[in-house]
Amino acid sequence: MPKDILDLEATPERLQALVDAGVLPPPYLRRARDLALAPPSREDWQRFLATTLIALGSLLVLSGVIYFFAYNWAGLHRFAKLGLIGLGITGCTLAAVGSGPLSQRFGHFGLLAATVLVGPLLAVYGQAYQTGADAFELFVGWAALILPWVAVSRFSPLWLLLLVLVDVGAVLVWKQLFDGADDLFTWWVVGIALFNGFAWATYEHFANLRVPWLQARGMARVFACMTVAPLLVVSIGFVVVPRSTGPAGTVAVVLLLATFAAEYALHRHLGGELFLLTLGALCAMTLVTTVIGHASLESQRFDDVAFTFFVLSIAIIAQVALAVWWLRREARATGTTEES
């Protein structure tokens, strides 16, 4: 529930409810709707334009740098390559620091650009000096080098970049150090999910401590998806081919159930985090449907696929109905809005 129920969005249904309750005189409903559907203020437009300009500008400059190196790859001396990237990193960092209080967003995007450029720097270094480094060393090194910036940036997209780099590095470690060993794959995926879950839990912990730049829910939801997705994949594998997944499958299922509990606990604690509940419901439904489908196919002859389809369609309808009923009940209880 929001701190004040009147902080809910002024939808036409809610305004009509105020008319029905005698709070809003019927002749003024039209005016209330006009106010509810009013366009953004001039200040809102200015903020929007400023954010759009800086986001597009940063993206274009970064893309241009990548194209530049793609063109000049063979022709540039190694010192020129390293120097140019180093100059870019230094320039972006100085711009980030120098923007100061005038534009925090400008500083954030500058730092983002600097951290992205560290990757090409390592790649060029590896190429120039033929270090023989494996690809995973690039990603792991990239993540390690940007860690101090990420720690001081107070900018959650940088944490996402770090997480993605670590995940990619982990996959490459499995492929290159362990030769893509099949018996390790499921454990590796569970390990990645655990690491992503740690990032998610850390985010929620500091958000709970009211750290100002962690109050937006978007990044937490992304981390939740990155935690749940690998667990769901292994869990489905555990249902369909249990011998291939081994004990890792059991662990994945247990961890997946744990994420359901965590999602509900967060929803209650935050007074409405319906996205996480929906994510949990979707995962649960996927898993249950896989169990039902697998059991039905295993127990029937091939000719009875129609029976399996019938069972699955009824099962899906029933599960979605139950989930939507439950989610709507939770939405009512916590006052989650239409566009949460």
Binding site: D4, L6, D7, L8, E9, A10, R14, L18, E339
Partner: peptide, 9 residues
């Protein structure tokens, strides 16, 4: 992004 009931009232 849209106005709240409080804003409208």
């Amino acid at each position: 992004m849209r106005p709240s009931l409080q804003d409208v009232l």
